[in-house]
């Protein structure tokens, strides 16, 4: 009993997703990827529930549309689009990395060690720049046009 208690305490758990030490940017992108993915799923289910109110007739549909016609929901929608862009771009990066592009080959290791993570880092920066550009375009489109 005592032993299992100790065990549970020392697995980092979801806390380990957020902060576990001073690691590279990829470890935090991983967590963002999960959160944005969960956010998109949550949005999808809400979206399906909300639009399905149409089968109860025009009145209920209009009422539910009015309910979500508030700045807070608009901001939520904005976040969903941002999460989607992030998830898609980072997913594309992972797709290439998991097919072993940009990570190099096994080699004899000498100090200071180089790693696959360092080798693919320029690709991370590129993804982030693309993300930033798309976010700017999206924000302008969302709030000003």
């Amino acid at each position: 009993m005592r032993e299992t208690l100790i065990k549970q305490r020392y697995r980092l758990g979801t806390k380990g997703w957020f902060y576990a030490g001073r690691y590279g940017i990829e470890r935090y992108l991983y967590i963002f990827h999960r959160i944005s993915g969960l956010g998109i799923i949550l949005y999808l289910s809400l979206h399906i529930i909300l639009t399905s109110t149409r089968i109860f007739g025009q009145g209920i549909w209009v009422a539910s549309m009015e309910m979500v016609d508030k700045p807070i929901f608009k901001f939520g929608e904005y976040l969903v689009v941002a999460a989607f862009i992030y998830h898609a771009l980072n997913g594309l990066r992972l797709f290439f990395i998991e097919l072993s592009f940009f990570i190099g080959k096994p080699s004899r290791q000498d100090y200071p060690y180089t790693t696959s993570v360092k080798r693919q880092r320029p690709f991370v920066y590129l993804t982030m720049i693309a993300l930033l550009c798309l976010l700017v375009i999206m924000s302008v489109d969302f709030y000003f046009i």
């Binding site: 576990a20 690691y23 990829e26 470890r27 991983y30 992972l94 696959s116 360092k118």
Partner: peptide
């Protein structure tokens, strides 16, 4: 999912 922390540490 390629968080890469193992390689760095």
């Amino acid at each position: 999912h390629m968080a890469g922390a193992c390689a760095e540490a």
